[in-house]
Amino acid sequence: MSIVVKNLSFTYGTGTAYQKKALDDINLVINEGDFVGIVGHTGSGKSTFIQHLNGLIKPQEGEVQVFDILLTNAKKPKPDLRRLRGSVGMVFQYPEYQLFEESVYKDVAFGPKNLGLNDEEIKERVKEAIELVGLDYEKVKDRAPFELSGGQKRRVAIAGIIAMRPKVLILDEPSAGLDPYGKEQILSLITRLKKDVCPTIVVISHDIDEITRFASRIVVFNESKIAYDIPMEELFEKEEELTAMGLDIPTAVKIKNDLAKKGIGLQGQIVNENDLEKAIINAYNSKRVDKNAIDDNPGDGGEEV
């Protein structure tokens, strides 16, 4: 188990007129190798939640265990936050706004430097991270971040996190605001990182069509609580409940449901476009086989008595 969250609650502005409970008794286990998609309407508590996972917010009630590091509201013992942030990498929304150094190299090197590594090790990690996010190290290392395109800047920001070699990577709306091409690149980058670098990934997304393309598990936040943490196929049967929470079900599931209403049942689990595509191809091919079978054997319809 990578992350274990027990009875976690958090209230903003306690004792003021703006008091708001952002998390209410959250329990969640994230296993090594999980690809978790977190969905929820704006204000549902998901951002507050992920900020607990690398110690940006200290728990008020309950506890968060990340590998061997325990986070509670106790004053002592102090958790090793530096080690925690090396293990859990966090990519915020619009991370390109956080680039601040004069060169791409320096920006990506900032994290590893803070981990106290030597120059040799830093250089190796920076090169590796920049190449991992699909940029040409020699070409970009000396350029100013602001000279790059939006999608490239975002990849540099992600490289800065990757260079810390985290064991868990958390991304908040990683594809927001990018054009379709930039989106595709970021999404395939995340898939690649999951495979080669960082086995456990948590992604917050508003786009249910996008998140179901790669997540192995969806956790739904609603009004400061976890509303659902159940298998996806089961989850998307709850269209009415999800709609009431301001959430969509995937387009692929909607199409499957519309077809079912017209008497066409597709086989197998369908939670994303790939599933739908395969199911349609199968249905089409098997229908064609049936039809051919009938055509090839005229009279073999059982009329002969």
Partner: peptide
């Protein structure tokens, strides 16, 4: 649109 796609699929499946 989704509606047009569903209509097409109904014709084919």
């Amino acid at each position: 649109t989704k509606e047009e796609l569903v209509e097409e699929l109904c014709r084919l499946l």
